[in-house]
Simulated scan of single mutants.
Amino acid sequence: MTTTVVGPAPVTAVTKRRRTIAHAGLLAVLVLIVVFASVRTDAFLSTNNLLNVLRQVSVVAVIAAGLTLLMTAGGMDFSLGGNVAVTTAVAAQMFAHGQSTWLTLLASIALATTIGLVNGVVVTFTKVAPFVATLATATLLDGVALLIINGLSVSIDDQLAGLGNGKTLGLPNLVFVAALVLLVIALIMRYTTFGRDAFAIGGNEDVARLSGINVARDKLILYGFAGALAGLAGIMLLSRLGASSPGTGGLQLQLTAVAAVVIGGTSLAGGKGTVFGTVLGVLLLGLVANVLNLLQISSYYQTISVGAVLLIAAIANTLQRRRA
């Protein structure tokens, strides 16, 4: 008996139109926020403020880029924020003990990649739900980060000042790093076999396996890659702050990245996602946080806003999937 295997569904004109409408809605919201902020405070459109926003969202953008590819394949990693915390802690201690910059960078990102791979092994071979497995890892990593720095702030002086505070062509260097990462992820998702396989796995893992895709291998690569980008984001955050402190990275950073990806239209069930949507989601959350700061609104409302936006986006995501 012959078995007919169905591959990933093609991108139809209707699908493209839905994505265009969703992105147009996000762009409209961004425009409204910019107009509102410009009217309420003169500081919003100042060069220093806009550059500061770009510098801040660059870290989230790198985490969100890896998460977009992972979630498109039906995966999830809630430990990326904890991975950032551990990476910054390890790198800060290595700098404090006189290690070279390149050794510190390579060791930190290698550690972050290993953490991602461990998550991939647990999720792939034990069949534990990604949410449960990576949330447990996130809690563990937050504690490990505190142990590494002994609950104190560890300064790196000006070791990475060129990356964290330097500019090229008038733009922060962190922006160029984030843009390069986003471009690479976009190219992978659109033009490579690996990217198409990620969509297929997220659409239907069993069908993808029957069609000859090495699902286990690809999932390990996806989790490892997401971990590596979390490590890079940790280095970027450390270069901007100049120190690793309790609370650096962690769950709040993770939730912001997840919210940005979901707002951008990446499906929580897998099989759908775009880097452009993720960029819009990152900018939206960054601008909202900036406006709240400029208007001197309590930081508690920033946390509330991220949670509210994530909840609304998740509901919209689910309703859209049902209609599809």
Rank of each mutant, 00 (worst) to 15 (best):
V291M: 13
L80H: 01
L237Y: 04
V90K: 11
R17L: 01
L253G: 01
I188F: 12
L238N: 11
A289Q: 09
G307K: 09
T274Y: 05
D142W: 01
N290E: 06
A200N: 02
F44V: 03
N290T: 01
V181F: 15
S305W: 00
T193Q: 11
A85F: 03
Y223T: 07
V90D: 05
G82S: 08
L238A: 10
V90I: 14
N173I: 01
T193E: 09
A9K: 15
L117D: 02
A112S: 14
A260K: 08
V11Y: 06
A186Q: 12
V279T: 04
A289P: 02
S305E: 00
F131T: 06
A13H: 09
G202Y: 04
V62F: 12
G227S: 06
L285F: 00
R196G: 04
F36Y: 15
L310I: 10
R321W: 01
L311K: 11
T137R: 03
G25H: 05
V53A: 11
L292W: 08
N317I: 02
H97F: 07
V288P: 04
A28M: 09
A198G: 06
L319D: 00
A200V: 00
G231C: 06
A136I: 13
A24L: 12
V62S: 13
V57Q: 13
V90A: 09
M1H: 14
A91E: 10
H97R: 03
R209E: 02
V175N: 11
L70R: 12
S245K: 05
K167N: 14
L147Y: 04
D142C: 02
L310E: 02
N173A: 12
F95C: 01
L67Y: 06
S58P: 13
L222F: 03
K16M: 07
L54P: 05
A65Q: 06
A324R: 15
A233E: 08
T104K: 15
V128L: 15
V261F: 01
V39E: 00
N150M: 00
G120W: 03
N52S: 12
S155C: 00
D77Q: 08
A65M: 13
G82L: 08
G273T: 13
N317F: 10
L32Q: 05
R240A: 13
N290D: 09
